[in-house]
Design a protein around this nucleic acid. Structure first.
Length: 548
RNA sequence: GCGCCCGUAGCUCAAUUGGACAGAGCAUUGGACUACGAAUCCAAAGGUUGCAGGUUCGAGUCCUGCCGGGCGCGCCA
């Protein structure tokens, strides 16, 4: 919070000293080395090239004006021209009191100003159960949605169902063939069929539900198998996601885009704009004119539409008919070649570039011994998400996924994760929360009534206490950058920091003690830490247990 | 061949988007419970940030060229 105050104060001074450079971008940051103060800005360094003075000279004029500010106990110039700030301790104490007074409101920001955001994630094709690669996307997307709702955006979470096209046919056919196999017929299973064992289960169900399955025409039977498979698989996916605490507001069918004529409408629009043409009896979009490598096919010469066609329609509808101001898509990194394609289409339709943000989630590989394996639904080689959840637990799995940036790939050693589940950092953070709860339980046992609002926080003088106060204050800065960068792992790292500072404090000082005034101050501090931990964990979709 | 992502301590990852002496966890070694929970804490050790140039007050971060890994590059989905 103080970071934002510093930023606005520096900005004020910038405007008064150098009005012609008032939009210069500068940093306010917590220096790695605490000898350089609580916060630091590089404003003088970035101005250096623009005004004809040395950075230290510029810094000097800034610091003279800034040192008047009551929240700053010291302002200093250092190194090549950094301005370093020391914050009055009283500020942090007031901030804690504020938190205790306001409750949940304290944790809200208004970065979004009510903008409507659609977060589309997972969207795994209903051709098989979710595996741990999907889990990564689910954890990430769900957490981003939580973070955005917390920061003033109006969020809809959506799962896009690819229930149209040739792969659905392949799926139906795979089930159909397995059904035949089950009744003893000899079959030849195609290489591009779905190999997983779950196909047998669905085939069994198909035979039960449609006793005459094998006597109707093959086309009819495959259609029955396809629809049953989608139904069964989607239900399974829904249950997995629920167990994983990834919530969706909307399940959006690709097929419905055709049924409601959205695809046709958008194609007509593109045609009116002169952006499509026919060649070799296929229909093409002029993607190359909008930044893609080459033009792309919308309708094949067979008359079938490509995914690209329905994807344009889907996103057109998101922006122009459903009224979203921002669309966040989480895709597996194997689709990255598709990004310029979709972006080119949105550009052609007049959507500003920054309104579509595609987050690519890097692959999750399986580490078996020393061997790395990529997962494949079609080959039937994958570890199911539900298996991992039941053996390791939702909290631990989510925490692992959310403690890494989305753009580094993840080698997942399932055995190690199960074995080390006790050492997963999630327990470290949860334990800090449980420890605080246990202090309060102990206090209650002794008949002590905490009185947070009356506590004399000036008694919090130890350096460990100040560290906690500072961390509490910086929570919203972390929340802000994690929202702007769509990066939940920033919260994860912050929580580990906060938990660490608390554990350190806890082992050094007693909270419950004879000096009741000091005890009340410390209880108030503990309550502040507890609430931040709880809120932070909630943003990750991880529980904050009172006992472990 | 072209494009995107990655390469940081033995392992898994950070580094406030160009900032000051590159930091955590795990693993290793040594220490700390007769007081609120030891799922904890303290300490030690661990690095030419893949390599070579360049840009500037300042580079793990940006540019160029290599090396290594992953993924894409269809009238597939």
């Amino acid at each position: 919070m103080i970071k934002r105050i510093i930023r606005s104060k520096v900005k004020e001074v910038l405007e008064s000293l150098y009005p012609e450079h008032k939009d210069t971008f500068f940093e306010v940051e917590i220096p790695k080395n605490e000898a350089f103060g609580d916060y630091s800005t590089n404003v003088a360094l970035v101005l250096k090239g623009k005004v004809g003075k040395s950075p230290r000279e510029i810094a000097q004029s800034f610091s003279e004006m800034l040192s008047q500010e009551e929240n700053f106990s010291k302002v200093e110039i250092a190194g090549p021209g950094f301005i370093n700030f020391w914050i009055a301790e009283e500020f942090y104490r007031k901030n804690l009191k504020d938190l205790l007074k306001k409750g949940d409101e304290f944790f809200k920001l208004d970065l979004g100003r009510g903008q409507k955001v659609l977060v589309e994630f997972v969207s795994a094709n209903p051709t098989g159960p979710l595996h741990i690669g999907h889990g990564r996307g689910a954890a990430y997307g769900d957490s981003i949605a939580r973070i955005l709702s917390q920061t003033g955006f109006s969020v809809v979470r959506e799962y896009y169902i690819n229930d149209q096209g040739t792969q659905m046919h392949t799926l139906g056919k795979s089930v159909y063939l397995r059904a035949k196999e089950l009744v003893g017929e000899k079959i030849e299973f195609p290489e591009d069929g779905y190999q997983g064992a779950y196909i047998y289960d669905i085939a069994k169900l198909a035979l039960e539900r449609y006793p005459n399955l094998l006597s109707v025409s093959e086309d009819e039977a495959i259609a029955l198998c396809r629809d049953l498979a989608v139904e069964v698989i989607l239900e399974d996916i829904r249950m997995d996601l629920e167990k994983f605490r990834a919530h969706f507001d909307s399940w959006y069918s690709e097929r419905s885009l055709f049924e409601r004529g959205v695809v046709a409408r958008v194609l007509r629009l593109l045609e009116e704009k002169g952006l499509i043409y026919e060649k070799d009896s296929a229909l093409w979009f002029r993607a190359k004119d909008f930044g893609d490598e080459k033009d792309r096919v919308l309708r094949k010469s067979t008359g079938d539409y490509t995914y690209f066609a329905s994807d344009i329609a889907y996103h057109y509808e998101k922006f122009f008919e459903r009224g979203f101001d921002l669309c966040v898509n989480l895709w597996g990194a194997d689709h990255h070649g598709y990004v310029p394609r979709l972006k080119s289409a949105m550009k052609a339709l007049g959507v500003p570039e920054e309104k579509l943000r595609v987050i690519l989630i890097q692959m999750v590989n399986l580490l078996e011994g020393t061997e790395l394996k990529s997962m494949s639904t079609r080959r039937g080689e994958f570890v199911e998400l539900k298996e991992l959840i039941s053996e390791v637990g939702t909290d631990a799995v989510r925490f692992i996924f959310l403690s890494r940036s989305s753009d580094s790939s993840l080698d997942f050693d399932v055995e190690l994760t199960k074995k080390q589940s006790q050492e997963n950092p999630v327990y470290y953070v949860q334990y800090a929360h449980a420890r605080i709860c246990s202090v309060f339980a102990k206090a209650e046992e002794k008949g002590i009534k905490p009185n947070f609002l009356e506590a004399n926080l000036a008694l919090l003088q130890e350096k460990e206490e100040l560290k906690l106060l500072k961390l509490i204050d910086s929570f919203d800065d972390v929340l802000e950058s994690s929202a702007l960068q769509l990066a939940p792992y920033k919260i994860t790292y912050y929580l580990m920091d906060l938990a660490s500072a608390f554990h350190d404090y806890y082992t050094k000082y007693r909270i419950i003690q004879d000096d009741t005034e000091l005890m009340q101050a410390r209880l108030a501090l503990c309550e502040g830490v507890r609430r931040v931990l709880k809120h932070g964990l909630e943003l990750l979709g991880v529980s904050a247990p009172e006992k472990m």
